[in-house]
Design a protein around this nucleic acid. Sequence first.
DNA 1: ACTAAATAGTCCAAAATCGCTCTATAAAGT
DNA 2: ACTTTATAGAGCGATTTTGGACTATTTAGT
Lengths: 183, 183
Amino acid sequence: MAVKAAAKRKSGTTEELNVGWQPGERVLHGLLLDAILKDNPIPLAYRMNYIANFYVGPLVAMMEKSFKLTRSEWIVLFCLTRQPRLNAQQISIVTGRPKTSIAGAVKLLQKKGLITRKTDIADSRARVLHLSDSGQRIYTAIIGSFIEREKAMLETLDPAERRELGRLFGKIIAAADAWAKPY
Amino acid sequence: MAVKAAAKRKSGTTEELNVGWQPGERVLHGLLLDAILKDNPIPLAYRMNYIANFYVGPLVAMMEKSFKLTRSEWIVLFCLTRQPRLNAQQISIVTGRPKTSIAGAVKLLQKKGLITRKTDIADSRARVLHLSDSGQRIYTAIIGSFIEREKAMLETLDPAERRELGRLFGKIIAAADAWAKPY
DNA sequence: ACTAAATAGTCCAAAATCGCTCTATAAAGT
DNA sequence: ACTTTATAGAGCGATTTTGGACTATTTAGT
């Protein structure tokens, strides 16, 4: 019946057979994922991107919804808490994001009063940024979720494994000059 | 030279000046980065996202330019090489990307003739996807860059470290049900 | 069997992202 | 000093991305 109806609608096309997974099962994600990971040509890069996406994606979505901040705005806020008095260019360089994206975020943040922007006395091209009080407050309100989610993500590792993971990341970053170039 | 100029500026600064780094130096990125990484509230998550971004960002840019493929289109192509006969929903679930993004990519890929799309005989709502020959060719043309870049990224690690990194990623992914949820 | 809920996919409008080009300032080379 | 090159940032337009509402089909609950 449903099959016949489908065949009628798409009369010319040959139908594909069933895929073999049971939709609606929690297991589905796992089996699918296994298929994607098996014999993956970029095993480490793929896994890392997978984890990074599932870590940060929902956080960004939550942030956009609850705090009306874009991802780029968050990046700027975050960088400025780490290191005040950066300018847009530096944030762009250190995060690898296009300078126009950062510039746009800076403009929005300034309009919202979350950062201040002053001309650098030593270089009148540059605008020195830092957090305002309300910028600091919104950062504080948000960062907890990031910390919690990292904690949850690492729950499965023991302390030694976490240290080792950090060490390996550190090594890769230390060598970034050798591999992290654009084309 | 540049150092001297910077030193001069440093002494003559009034309010908003003197960030302390010398623009134009290769060292700049490193010092900035150290500042961002030091006492980072999400040390592992931040480092992982940093590496993932610098790995995949330039690859995607290159791909968009040279092959006129969006990131979402690449994701679909990649998934279909791993596991033919997926549908859009499954790709969305397993990659964590919004289904509308995947749907849009699927439509584009079909228009370009890189994938085929047939109604699933067992479920007439679903469309079973797989690569066409030209889809396979374009995948082959692209994937090499991803492999090379992964290789370059891991150059600094010895084989045992690479295995360990893979093992730790595997553990985190295996526990994804416990932490990778949306809000 | 019948209703309610879940699922696959589409469509659309709003938003974000990003490449390109342009101005201005600053540094480097001669 | 003077020319050249590099840098910081702005503005604009095109493309991508995505949330939300909608339809069609399937599954689950009773």
